Simulated assay, not measured.
Amino acid sequence: MTTDESPARRTALVTGASSGIGAATARRLAADGFDVVLAARREDRIAALAAEVGGRAVVCDVTDDASVAAMAREVGDCSVLVANAGGAVGMDAVVDGDVEEWRWMYDVNVLGTLRVIQAMMPALVASGQGHVVVMGSTAGRVTYEGGGGYTAAKHGAKALAETLRLELLGQPVRVSEIAPGMVKTEEFSANRFRGDADAAAKVYDGVAEPLVAEDVADCVSFVVTRPAHVDVDLLVVRPLAQAAQHRVHREG
């Protein structure tokens, strides 16, 4: 810990905790001393990780109102919410985009975040030191060809976080957005390319050191362990090899 704000007995809820950034964040916050609740759809994964870190597992589908409400009841007291559940699918041009894929991306990245925030806000306010961390993306700040559906959704998540911060002024709840660039995880690109492992691997071709999930978890840890009066509004993090969305150094 690098702050005098001790997380002892504070509960942190991490959605999308079954893999990637969510799983790494759950591990990191548990190591920081938080009582971590891991939420995701895949019960076997979150149960195993909860046992590993001494946390609790709660099955939740953030696209389902009833599932989110049940999760909130089970979690109970909570001071930190890491709204991490999200994802991308497809790289089609806008004119060829699948409406259902766009709908899913908006539902999980924006409405899923909205559902969880609404469900957990009473507990966050009651804690007296609440903190909402929205997992955004550099895709929420710049567009690129083939990314229309995902960038639209992440721009929506950005707008949600910024609006929430304005509306909570005077309440004991901080709002932070983490916006990672190129992160290599076991599932994100594979899901985006619908299981095409070769296409997923090409995203990282020649990039010696893309970010990994633990790098982003480190950023989450930093913002939630600042003193209670310090709100890190936005933390943009990229690998050294990525200067911007379209500017990536590839060796060879």
Rank of each mutant, 00 (worst) to 15 (best):
42 R>M: 05
11 T>I: 10
144 Y>A: 14
30 A>L: 10
75 V>F: 01
79 S>H: 06
88 A>E: 08
179 A>C: 15
252 G>Q: 07
30 A>H: 08
246 H>P: 01
202 K>C: 11
127 S>A: 12
99 V>K: 02
17 A>P: 09
101 E>S: 11
70 A>C: 05
36 V>F: 03
110 V>R: 06
206 G>K: 03
89 V>G: 10
142 V>M: 06
248 V>L: 02
175 V>S: 01
68 V>T: 01
57 A>F: 02
118 Q>V: 15
118 Q>E: 13
101 E>P: 01
183 V>N: 00
229 H>F: 14
121 M>T: 12
195 G>M: 05
126 A>F: 09
54 G>Q: 02
178 I>Y: 00
249 H>W: 14
26 A>Y: 06
153 A>Q: 05
8 A>G: 01
149 G>N: 14
33 G>V: 04
103 R>N: 15
52 E>L: 08
35 D>E: 14
85 A>R: 04
134 V>W: 00
30 A>Q: 10
197 A>C: 04
21 I>C: 04
88 A>R: 08
53 V>Y: 09
5 E>C: 09
114 L>D: 13
108 V>D: 02
12 A>P: 11
156 G>Q: 08
44 D>Q: 15
40 A>H: 00
42 R>L: 03
222 F>S: 00
131 H>E: 07
83 A>L: 03
189 S>K: 04
189 S>F: 08
173 V>S: 00
86 G>F: 04
58 V>E: 07
22 G>C: 11
107 D>Q: 13
17 A>R: 03
247 R>C: 11
170 G>H: 04
114 L>S: 13
103 R>H: 11
125 V>A: 10
201 A>P: 15
242 Q>M: 09
163 T>M: 14
42 R>C: 15
200 A>H: 04
150 Y>E: 05
181 G>D: 00
166 L>K: 14
56 R>G: 09
54 G>F: 06
250 R>G: 13
120 M>Q: 10
24 A>D: 04
46 I>W: 00
120 M>S: 01
221 S>R: 05
174 R>L: 08
243 A>D: 15
27 R>T: 15
85 A>Q: 05
222 F>H: 01
244 A>W: 11
49 L>V: 08
112 G>F: 06
250 R>Q: 08
175 V>H: 13
185 T>P: 07
28 R>W: 07
14 V>L: 11
35 D>Q: 14
137 S>G: 02
209 E>D: 12
